[in-house]
């Protein structure tokens, strides 16, 4: 579905991605973990050509997204939903208009039909009551969930989540995890999730990848990931009290 081919990227005089290679299969929930500044957000941005590699290529299905332009690029981007780390909501639009924006600008749908869809998606992220509010009146976690509702409003086949549960309480975090897992099981959505929360990574991931200093140091299923011998993975696991016995469980799909 998505393939990184020898991708290198320099930003601000530093090598952020260093000849990265990996493939994400359709229907996977591919989780990327790694220290702050490791290049996780930069990786996601390469998948929709918000950044393009200095060398190497990024493929989405049969299309080379890293060289696409114009209408071609728009067509590829329409297959994606993207939850930004900062949520990136339009400050002057209320929550409902923010979530419905892609439909209002792109599709020939009536306003009523758009509103109905928006309410449905807001309910999925437990924010049904926030429709009329403005982003400035919401907490960080609520804004994140509005961003999530916007990312799934067009029912995309691939969804990129940049730290979907950071800043959320544990209970809401698990609701979001279940939502991500449900989209995979019920609709076959391919998800790429960047997170610092290893518990949620282990719960929802079909595979987990660890980025460190521009390199993929580990790509493995959750079962293998907790047993990894890699020192960075070990450090990451230990820091979140996860032992190699693997005391964690899979998320329940609704």
């Amino acid at each position: 579905m998505i393939r990184f081919e020898q991708v290198s990227k320099r930003l601000g005089g530093r090598i952020v991605l260093d000849e990265i290679n990996y493939t994400i299969e359709p229907g996977e929930t591919f989780v990327i973990v790694g220290a702050s500044g490791a290049g996780k957000s930069v990786s996601l941005k390469h998948m929709v050509r918000l950044l393009s590699p200095d060398s190497g290529r990024v493929w989405v299905g049969e299309d080379c997204v890293s060289e696409a332009r114009g209408d071609n690029l728009d067509r590829i981007r329409e297959r994606f939903g993207f939850l930004f780390q900062s949520a990136a909501l339009m400050q002057w639009l209320n929550v409902g208009d923010n979530v419905g924006l892609p439909l209002r600008m792109k599709k020939d749908m009536s306003d009523d039909a758009i509103d109905e869809l928006v309410r449905e998606k807001l309910a999925m992220v437990n924010l049904a009551e926030a429709f009329e509010k403005h982003p400035g009146e919401l907490s960080g976690g609520m804004r994140k969930r509005v961003g999530l509702a916007r990312a799934i409003i067009t029912d995309p086949e691939i969804i990129l989540y940049d730290e979907p549960t950071s800043g959320l309480d544990p209970v809401t975090s698990r609701t979001i995890d279940q939502l991500i897992d449900r989209l995979r099981v019920e609709l076959g959505v391919t998800s790429i999730v960047v997170t610092h929360d290893l518990h949620s990574a282990l719960a929802i991931g079909t595979r987990i990848a660890m980025l460190n200093e521009g390199k993929m140091v580990e790509v493995a299923t959750p079962e293998e990931f907790v047993k990894s011998k890699n020192e960075f993975v070990q450090g990451f696991l230990a820091a979140q009290y996860i032992t190699t016995r693997g005391d964690w469980e899979k998320a329940e799909s609704a």
Binding site: L50, R77, F82, A88, L89, Q91, P102, M105
Partner: peptide, 17 residues
């Protein structure tokens, strides 16, 4: 400018707007 630095312009681009 604020929209540019807070990724809102990027968000529009990704939504193909």
């Amino acid at each position: 400018g604020t929209m540019t630095v807070s990724e809102e312009i990027s968000a529009l681009e990704v939504m193909a707007i």
